[in-house]
Design a protein around this nucleic acid. Structure first.
Lengths: 180, 180
DNA sequence: TATTGTTATACTCTATAACTATA
DNA sequence: TATAGTTATAGAGTATAACAATA
């Protein structure tokens, strides 16, 4: 091992920093996060993870996978929605939508029908079971949203959502520009 | 197929709603998103995805995977950080940390050393190459943060970050309560 | 030619569990 | 017994690409 390739921390090196073999790790409560403290992506990831986990925990075992809640809700609220529409509205590829819908069809949550106007199009409609399932999930989702609301606080709530929406729109626009 | 299991949309059913085979899908620009418009988790997921994609696009091919930026930054800023500390600071399991570090070691971005005080502990230190790589990524990250800043707006920036932090802390606390 | 949806496949990121070695 | 790290494996969630049917 070539000692010259070993970097010291930013700032003036000290003898201590070179005695790695015997040195101890830095104190956990005083770690330097550098730019990470400003790194919104990290907070977005973590926020998504913990929110997702809270929702999943509230759904318990009698519910669908959390990701499917969006799709089932779209179908319940928009009978005869097409798979392409579901994909666009949920920002997922059509192949992912197919997989989800097949699962929901096997579970008797939805039925799929061919449009007579354009036989390429598959229309999704929720069954009574699907409607009930969605309502059950939505009720649990409300509890989840309530806890998020408590965390955020009512004054910040509206601004927070609109900021997230603006961030999404802006990044999508930039991404579309890049795709040229 | 049993027509009785087919559900109509919320509200009074109409004949039209039952003619699924011939009916057309709803207009895409007027889809009813129901509770999804309030569903913060969906926005968090999407915001994370688009932010992540922007960062990845800016890194280009000469950079690490975006998730590794956090780890490499922690190592550069905190020489001799242990793997457990990295896991805690990045909210990842130690097995995921091991995989990332092994890759970085193979790439000569870091070296790992045994602590003489406690030979179970592996200390990570960035190499000169690792320092340069992190600096390169950080420069690109700044461009990414700048575009996020433009999207969010300077007035909302501080509030947005602190709201995300509060959301994370609050959900982590609830999760810890649940784990009892 | 373009669009809708399907299928097979594979990728990314991550965690679980069993393990070794150290304490 | 408890902790740090490793390894093998698996899982969730998703996308890519080739395809068939239809327009």
């Amino acid at each position: 091992m070539n000692k010259k390739t070993i970097a010291t921390s930013p700032g003036p090196p000290t003898d201590d920093r070179l005695t790695y073999g015997t040195a101890q790790p830095p104190e956990s409560n005083s770690l330097d996060h550098g730019i990470l403290h400003e790194f919104i992506g990290m907070y977005l990831r973590r926020a998504y993870e913990v929110a997702y986990e809270d929702f999943r925990a509230r759904l318990g075992k009698d519910a669908l996978q959390p990701g499917y809640f969006t799709i089932l809700t779209l179908i319940v609220r928009n009978p005869r929605i097409s798979q392409t529409q579901i994909g666009t509205a949920s920002a997922r590829d059509k192949s992912s939508v197919t997989k989800a819908l097949r699962w929901m069809e096997d579970e008797d949550l939805i039925v799929r029908l061919r449009s007579a106007h354009d036989r390429r199009i598959h229309l999704s409609v929720a069954t009574e079971k699907g409607i009930k399932q969605q309502a059950l999930m939505e009720a649990k989702a409300l509890g989840h949203l309530h806890s998020l609301n408590d965390a955020i606080g009512p004054e910040r709530y509206a601004t927070f959502i609109s900021t997230l929406k603006d961030l999404i729109d802006s990044m999508e626009t930039i991404a579309a520009t890049r795709a040229d």
